[in-house]
Structure formats: structure tokens, C-alpha cells
Design a protein around this nucleic acid. Structure first.
Length: 761
DNA sequence: GAGCGATTAATTTTT
DNA sequence: TTAATCGCTC
């Protein structure tokens, strides 16, 4: 085996070989950060540190998995399995599970995701007879989340004059009450939300010195990835855990801090030296990823931000291609431009599908790219977005599993007590809640305890018996066996199976997929030296902390990746498209009036740029659909921050140029595609109308679809002038055949969706 | 209590 | 445009 220290530059080597004492590694984009971290862990172990004493914290499960894999590789053995590597949330969840009883929680506590939490807040707001348009659940959730991440509990929140003034100013004086009720409700339900996993960990270490001592003794070497994204709670926890030995190694890049909306504070990285006076600071400034051009552009862009640790990234790599800037007319054109460009690059430079990434600001932007990629038969993979675990049918199923493990959990209990329908309606549920409150007990106790009378019925008794029968399975049977029984005996699977609509079939498949994943869980050997706990409780504990990005099914597949820039952090691709560079979108309209917010958007742009190894495209569109109506945006201010010398502006033509049809390769593909009639039909269905050389009249206004009829002359935004031949279909779904002349021929247009102007009726 | 149609609200980013 | 909630009817 090659020496694991080979191939490190001087700074990297210094960082790796530093063993004891605090160290901060300021690692610019593409400077080999993960390599340093993993090599450092290997080095610690080679120097006699017990892997059992090493804790490495990351932000994503993916990063944790990668780190573990690379350490194993560097070591060439399986010693790494005793390492404690994981996300903040999953590591703390595991510790809290072991220590739960100290804090009064069941060890099988439920973890609420954001939707669960918002649901509870919504019901509290309702109970308090407040207007949920003013007391918006999402807003309140963020407020509570921010409080917890700042280590402010409900009581402190109420007594903090500054916070109270703020809430009074926004006319939401009852937020403190809501926070208080919310916390109590979660506690009563035996549940923690994401922020509790940090907050309660802090409480545990603060209030229970023996717990603190135990984990300080265990974690003698602590490594933190993406330190710039830590919040106050994480900071405090790390500080406490590391206080005994101060063997803390943090790695981060202030220029890539993009999570302040979630409470992260760059302050943590900026003040590391103040916290640890003898801290060693090492800067990694050589970039191994990108071309000179890409790096210069990135440096220039980030230079517009005021607050940062001074550093200058440089590279030995080739100068590379210019950055390609492209302007299109619509969002669909943008999608098409990108798909065409990918096809063209594949032909010219033999890139594989997986060499491309399309990075956007918001998930909602993915659609146009999906359509155009599908149209050109380019495989793609959507990373992130609505999580599998957020789908209704999956949540329903999981709700059953959760209350079996933790029947205290009222929210999940209410969710499925009458699904599938079993005659326990709103009225019954209301009564039970009232009764439970009177008796100061839980919902479950109220229906399950035979001593409590007057509310139970054959319906509730049947339900309780069923749940209890599952509960008896918990000890002896693994997660899959229980889950399977649930699907069978609740009628859940049958219910979905009976639904033969397209959506119904998809739901059924999703539930099958869920069962498969549970099965996979029970059959995968445990890592990290943990006991072989294949129980349902163990499964549920980790499932909430997983996101789609972590499922990594097909992540390695040869497909173009579509994702938000946030999701792309830490990744790299030979070819990157940074799309939607428009004011109000990127930078987001939410961030335009605050300097700090704007700088965060700029860092986000910096992250997008620095994902690229060889080639980078920046695209923007004149107009795009939002809420189904067309909006116009100016080009993003960030575009002006790219020095013109590095830009290829061939595709930004002014005015009328049909921006979508930009490459000869692109149109060639369309033609060959169109020659296959069956495929063309499919493509027409899937894709938006192709852009063509028609420029809409300056006074183009979309006319009311119901006014259209046969014989009229109309103008289409893309196809130009035409004559309506026939109109078929009912009022809701009228389809017109319109002759657009030799250039486009006869098109069938759905009047509901088409943008048509009546020229002559 | 269940099912259907109508109204409305939402789009920033995620563990 | 879509998803989710509301309210009405059976």
C-alpha cells in the first residue's frame, strides 16, 4: 500500500500531522478539504489514538459516509468501524436516545420533521383562536427554530425584552405562548424536533455533569466539517465536549457559509482564534479542482463581500475555457438551451451524462430542465426536492410505525386513527382530547385504558387492540416484520392497492419502496460497533434524519444531476450550469434589502461557480412563469461581477434572437428526433412548444381562451400568425387545430394553456 | 362521517 | 400551476 501521506502539499501535510491542541483549517473551495480531514483521522489512528475516542461531525449523511469510506481506504483495514462519524443531528440523536430518561423522554422518542412541527403549530394557533394568516405556521416555526438554535428556551424567550419588543413590533405578541405550548406538547408526545436534537444535547451536557464527563472522556479528538455552517447551539456543544482536551479540529471556509437562514453564524469561524489562544491556523489555498478562469471569476465575485478571512485561491491548472453566458427568452428556452449544450458537449468532448450538473436557486426551477432533458433522451437525476419521506402515503405508514414504538405521540396517532376509515371521526377525537386534558393524561391512555370510561367504543377498542398486538411484536421481531404486519392488518396496503388511478398506483409503489427500504435496513450489517439493533425503534430513529440526497440510489448512475446550489455544496462536476441568474430569483427577492442576506446570496453564487472543474455556463431568462403567470426579471447583479474578459457572450444576443435555438447541434438533434413520429408525439406531450423564429408583436396580450372559435385569425407567441381550423372538446378542455402556415404547419393547441392573441375574429 | 367540488395560498435555501 | 384546506351535500 502507498503511504497515506503521499501526495499532500506542505499545508495539507502540516494540518494532517498536527495531533494535539486546537487547529483551524481554512480550506478554500477545491483545496482538498475532505482529503485532509480523512487523512488526519487515519494519521491519528496510526499514532495510537483509539478510533473509539474520535468524533467527526458533518452536516450531511453523505459527507459522513464518504469520510468513513475514505478513512477505511487510507487505513486499509476495518479499524475505522469504531469511529464515531456522523451528522450533528444523527450523532446527538443517538446519544440522546441513550440518555433520554435523564431528560424525561422515552428512549424511543419520536423525531418530528419540519412538517410535523408546523402541523403542531398550526393546531396550537387554531386552539388559541388566532388568525393563521397572521400567525403563519412557517413563520412561527422559523422563529422557534431560531430561538432554539440560539439556546433560548421558552421561558427565556418570554423574559427577553429585546425579543418581546420584536414580537410586539411585528404584532405577534403571543409567540412566547405558542413557543411554550409547542415545547410542552412535544415533550408530552415524547418527541423532539430537529432543533431539539441540538438544544437537548446542550441541556444534557449543561445539567448533567456526569454525562458531560462521560462524553468528554469518550471524545478526545473532535473534528468538525463545514465549521462555517455551525450555529450557536452546535458551537456551545462542541466547546463543552472539547473542553477537557481541546483537541478540536475545525475545517471550514467562510466564503462558503450559506446556511445563516438556519441559524448558522460565520462568527464561529471568525472568532476561533479568540476562543483558543494557542490555536494553530492553517490555510489551504491551492485549488486542485478548477481552471484558472473559473477560479479567477470566483475570486472576483467573492471579492465583493466585505467580511471575510483574507485568502487568495490559486491553481496550477490550465487556463481553460471562458465562462459561457447565455440569455434566453423564457424559462423553457433556458431548459432547452441547457439540454442542447449538454448534447453538444457530449458530441464534441465526449463527456458522460454524470459529468454535468444543473444548479439552481430554488427547487421549483427544475421543471424546465427535466422536460428538455427528457425530450433529448438524456438521463437525469433530480437530487433533493420533496423527500420521499414527506409523501403523504409514506408519512401515513410511518405514523403507524411511530405510534407503535411511542404511543405517546398524539400527532401521529391522530393522523392515522381513522385512516383507513374505521368510524373514529372528528367528534370522537375532540372528545378524547378534552377528556385526556381533564385527566391530565395522554390521548393514547384515554382510549387504551379500560378504567377510563364513557368514550370508548367498539371502534376505538378495536383500534387499540390492533396497535397493542403490534406492540407485542416489537421485542421479538425486527423492523421489517412489524412493518409488514402493519401494512397487512391495518388494511393500509389494501387501501392503496385498490386505488387504480395513476396517482394511486404511484402511492402503492412508494409504500412498497418504503417496505423495501425497511427490509434493506434489517438486512444490512450494523456499523460503528453498535449492537445489532434491527428493531423498529432503531429504524425510525434514523429515518427522519435522512433526506433524499442521502438515499443515494442512482447518485453514481450516469445521469445529469439537477439540484439546488445548497444541495451541491461539497460536490464537483466537470461541467456546471448555473441557471436562473436573475434579480428576484438569484439573488432571491427575500434578500435584496439586507446587506448580510445579499452577501450570503453572493457566497451561494460563489459555491455554484466553484463546483465546476472544466466548464461553466451562466444562464438567465428574460421571463419565466411564476404561479402560472409570466414575470419579467432583470439579469442578476452578480453577472456584472464577472469580469467581461472571462466571459463568452455569444449567446446573449440582444432583442429578437431566438435564444433557445443556439447550437447547430441542438437543432440537429431536434430534427432527427422529430423524424420518429411516435417519439415526436411523446416529446410534444412532454415538452413545451419549441421556440421558433417568431417575435411576438409589441402589443401582444393573451386573449381569453373562451373567446376563441373556428375561423379566427390568431397570433401565437412562438408559432406566429395562424388560423383556427376547428375547435373540439368541452369548455374546460378545448383543443383547437390551428394552421400556422408552412413554417409550423397545423398544430393542436390546448386553448386553456396557449398564449394566443386574437388578430381578427 | 365520508366524499366531492371549490377556494386559496404558496416559492428560498435543509438537518 | 399545484397542493392543500374548506365547506357543502348525501
Amino acid at each position: 500500500m502507498q503511504n497515506y501521506l503521499d501526495g499532500l502539499n506542505a499545508q495539507q501535510l502540516a494540518a494532517v500531522q498536527h495531533i494535539d491542541g486546537p487547529i483551524m483549517i481554512v480550506a478554500g473551495a477545491g483545496s482538498g478539504k475532505t482529503k485532509v480531514l480523512t487523512t488526519r483521522i487515519a494519521h491519528l489512528m496510526k499514532n495510537g489514538v483509539d478510533p473509539f475516542n474520535i468524533l467527526a461531525l458533518t452536516f450531511t449523511n453523505k459527507a459522513a459516509a464518504e469520510m468513513k469510506e475514505r478513512v477505511e481506504k487510507a487505513l486499509g483495514n476495518t479499524e475505522a468501524r469504531n469511529l464515531y462519524i456522523g451528522t450533528f443531528h444523527s450523532v446527538f440523536a443517538r446519544i440522546l436516545r441513550a440518555e433520554a430518561t435523564r431528560l424525561g423522554y422515552p428512549s424511543n422518542f419520536t423525531i418530528y420533521d419540519t412538517d410535523d412541527a408546523k402541523g403542531i403549530i398550526r393546531s396550537i394557533v387554531k386552539d388559541m383562536n388566532l388568525d393563521d394568516k397572521h400567525y403563519k405556521p412557517a413563520f412561527i416555526y422559523n422563529r422557534i427554530s431560531a430561538a432554539k438554535n440560539g439556546l433560548v428556551d421558552a421561558a427565556t424567550y418570554r423574559n427577553d425584552t429585546h425579543i418581546q419588543q420584536e414580537d410586539a413590533r411585528s404584532n405577534r405578541p403571543l409567540l412566547a405562548d405558542i413557543y411554550d405550548t409547542y415545547s410542552k406538547r412535544c415533550f408530552k408526545n415524547g418527541a423532539m424536533d430537529f432543533d431539539d436534537l441540538l438544544f437537548k444535547m446542550y441541556v444534557l451536557l449543561t445539567n448533567y455533569p456526569e454525562a458531560l464527563a462521560k462524553y468528554q472522556g469518550r471524545f478526545r479528538y473532535i473534528l468538525i466539517d463545514e465549521y462555517q455552517d455551525t450555529n450557536v447551539a452546535q458551537y456551545a456543544i462542541i466547546k463543552m465536549l472539547g473542553a477537557r482536551n481541546e483537541n478540536i479540529c475545525v475545517v471550514g471556509d467562510d466564503a462558503q457559509s450559506i446556511y445563516s437562514f438556519r441559524g448558522a453564524t460565520v462568527q464561529n469561524i471568525l472568532q476561533f482564534q479568540d476562543d483558543y489562544e494557542d490555536a494553530v491556523i492553517i490555510k489551504l489555498e491551492q485549488n486542485y479542482r478548477s481552471t484558472q478562469t473559473i477560479l479567477q471569476v470566483a475570486n472576483n465575485v467573492i471579492g465583493n463581500n466585505a467580511n471575510q478571512i483574507p485568502k487568495e485561491l490559486w491553481t496550477d491548472n490550465a487556463e481553460g475555457e471562458k465562462i459561457l453566458l447565455a440569455r434566453t427568452m423564457t424559462d423553457n428556452d433556458e431548459g432547452k438551451f441547457v439540454a442542447d449544450a449538454i448534447k453538444e458537449q457530449q458530441m464534441r468532448n465526449h463527456y458522460a451524462n454524470k459529468d454535468f450538473a444543473v444548479l439552481y436557486r430554488t427547487n421549483a426551477q427544475s421543471r424546465a430542465f427535466e422536460e428538455s432533458l427528457r425530450r433529448l433522451n438524456i438521463p437525469y437525476k433530480l437530487v433533493g426536492g420533496t423527500s420521499f419521506y414527506q409523501r403523504k402515503e409514506v408519512k401515513d405508514y410511518l405514523a403507524y410505525l411511530r405510534i407503535i414504538v411511542n404511543p405517546q405521540d398524539e400527532e401521529n396517532l391522530k393522523r392515522i386513527i381513522n385512516y383507513p376509515a374505521r368510524g373514529i371521526g372528528k367528534t370522537t377525537i375532540e372528545r378524547v382530547i378534552v377528556r385526556a386534558d381533564q385527566l391530565n393524561t395522554t390521548f393514547w391512555e384515554t382510549i387504551a385504558n379500560p378504567e377510563i370510561d364513557g368514550l370508548r367504543s367498539s371502534h376505538t377498542d378495536g383500534f387499540v387492540m390492533m396497535i397493542n398486538s403490534f406492540r407485542t411484536m416489537l421485542e421479538k421481531q425486527n423492523a421489517y416484520d412489524v412493518a409488514f404486519a402493519v401494512g397487512k392488518h391495518t388494511g393500509l396496503v389494501q387501501e392503496l392497492y385498490n386505488d387504480k388511478t395513476v396517482e394511486g398506483v404511484a402511492r402503492y409503489e412508494n409504500v412498497q419502496e418504503l417496505l423495501n427500504s425497511i427490509k434493506e435496513f434489517t438486512e444490512t450489517p450494523d456499523e460503528e460497533g453498535e449492537l445489532h439493533d434491527k428493531s423498529l425503534g432503531s429504524y425510525l430513529q434514523q429515518i427522519t434524519l435522512l433526506t433524499d440526497a442521502d438515499q443515494d440510489k442512482g447518485v453514481d448512475a450516469d445521469a445529469v444531476k439537477l439540484m439546488t446550489i445548497h444541495a451541491a455544496k461539497g460536490l464537483e462536476f466537470p461541467c456546471v450550469f448555473a441557471v436562473g441568474l436573475e434579480e428576484n430569483l438569484f439573488p432571491s427577492s427575500m434578500s435584496l434589502y439586507d446587506r448580510a442576506d445579499l452577501e450570503e446570496e453572493r457566497r451561494l453564487f460563489y459555491v455554484a461557480i466553484t463546483r465546476a472543474k472544466h466548464r461553466l455556463w451562466i444562464t438567465y431568462s428574460n421571463s419565466r412563469y411564476r404561479f402560472g403567470s409570466l414575470v419579467q426579471n432583470d439579469p442578476s447583479r452578480f453577472i456584472k461581477e464577472v469580469p467581461p474578459a472571462y466571459l463568452d457572450t455569444t449567446f446573449t444576443g440582444t432583442g429578437n434572437r431566438p435564444a433557445g435555438n443556439t447550437s447547430s447541434f441542438g437543432s440537429m438533434f431536434n430534427q432527427s428526433f422529430d423524424n420518429i413520429p411516435s417519439l415526436k408525439k411523446l416529446a410534444d406531450k412532454l415538452a413545451a412548444p419549441k421556440p421558433a423564429a417568431h417575435t411576438p408583436s409589441p402589443d401582444f396580450v393573451q386573449d381569453d381562451a373562451t373567446a376563441m372559435d373556428a375561423g379566427m385569425q390568431v397570433e401565437h407567441q412562438k408559432f406566429g400568425f395562424g388560423k383556427i381550423l376547428t375547435v373540439e372538446g368541452g369548455t374546460a378542455n378545448r383543443i383547437a387545430s390551428i394552421d400556422f402556415g408552412p413554417a409550423h404547419g397545423v398544430k393542436k393547441i390546448m386553448l386553456n394553456f396557449a398564449k394566443l392573441r386574437i388578430v381578427k375574429s
